[in-house]
Design a protein around this nucleic acid. Structure first.
Lengths: 163, 163
DNA sequence: GTGCCAACTCAAGTCCACTTGAGGTCAAGA
DNA sequence: TCTTGACCTCAAGTGGACTTGAGTTGGCAC
């Protein structure tokens, strides 16, 4: 089996060598062994890096991604989890769609100032309610990630009825 | 004009008082003055906080949001900028849509393992190319934000043709 | 043998948007 | 008078995903 040194993996994956070392330290990838000092990786690592990239794109943290690999390094995702994440992405899409439409409207709206444009104001209020706040960190309620006291929600209390 | 102390603003906006002090330090909001030690805010601050929330939802950094207020504190967004951001959001939406569909497919796909599902593999490859990487920080190419040596793109080089 | 370069380790730094903690001030109520 | 509680300042900490820097090692070409 072909062995790649870290520089080669970096070139082929587009990631920095430091990133690869970091992933290794976090247990996301593993070198076959060493040649002298140097790590040598099997080609499968490239596939694994693609998986990691996918997980990141789907909004999972590195810790969550790590948990999706079985101890032997093989992929082990439960499908319900995938579906749950898909739904979350779907909600993000809806929020972003509202945002996009609002922005477009505000851009062409004839009101003398944004603050006088009702559509813009609706958007503002929605944002203030936290109804738009974009792509939340994957938090499927299945605490795969370490209990970090997550930086999940900024707004603490829903504001009461408008005074 | 009615004056609110920081606790009242916190209650009505749902933000922590520390956040409000932080926003003030960053020049995003301004107190009318002090009553003794205590800041006193005008009611307009609530509207401004909504605007800030909207800006954040649209993916702007606090520095960028600050730049959208004229020195006198009034709103000053150029409409082309809004459109540009709307387009960016639109691209995010497309990426997320692909992602969602891919996740759903993978969840129901009958292939014995995800790695053998062609659809999943396509998604992986796209992610590895950086084609999915979610909602980029608003970076309209108009450097409103301080030149921070931005943490914008993780992947450094596009990987070359598959070896 | 010696010079170079790519890899190595380990600690510390970066970015962003806040939060936390320690220690201080002040007005109002008991 | 004393206490309480809300506010204050300023410095430092947080989390996630990396990057950077300093100092070291080892293989290969010359």
């Amino acid at each position: 089996m072909q062995e790649l040194d870290i520089g080669e993996v970096a070139r082929q994956s587009g990631l920095a060598a430091s990133t690869l070392r970091y992933y290794e330290a976090r247990g996301l990838i593993r070198a076959l062994g060493r040649r002298g000092l140097r790590r040598s990786f099997g080609v499968e690592v490239l596939e694994k890096l693609s998986l990691i990239a996918l997980g990141q794109a789907a909004g999972f943290s590195l810790a969550e991604i790590a948990a999706m690999f079985a101890p032997d390094g093989h992929l082990q995702i439960d499908r319900p989890k995938l579906l749950a994440r898909a739904d979350q992405v779907d909600r993000s899409i809806r929020r972003l769609t509202a945002l996009r439409d609002g922005l477009r409207h505000a851009a062409v709206c004839q009101a003398p100032s944004h603050l006088e444009c009702p559509s813009f104001r609706r958007l503002m209020q929605a944002a203030a309610r936290g109804a738009i706040r974009s792509p939340e960190p994957a938090d499927t309620k299945a605490p795969l990630s370490l209990p970090t006291g997550a930086r999940t929600s900024r707004r603490r209390r829903p504001p009461p009825a408008p005074a």
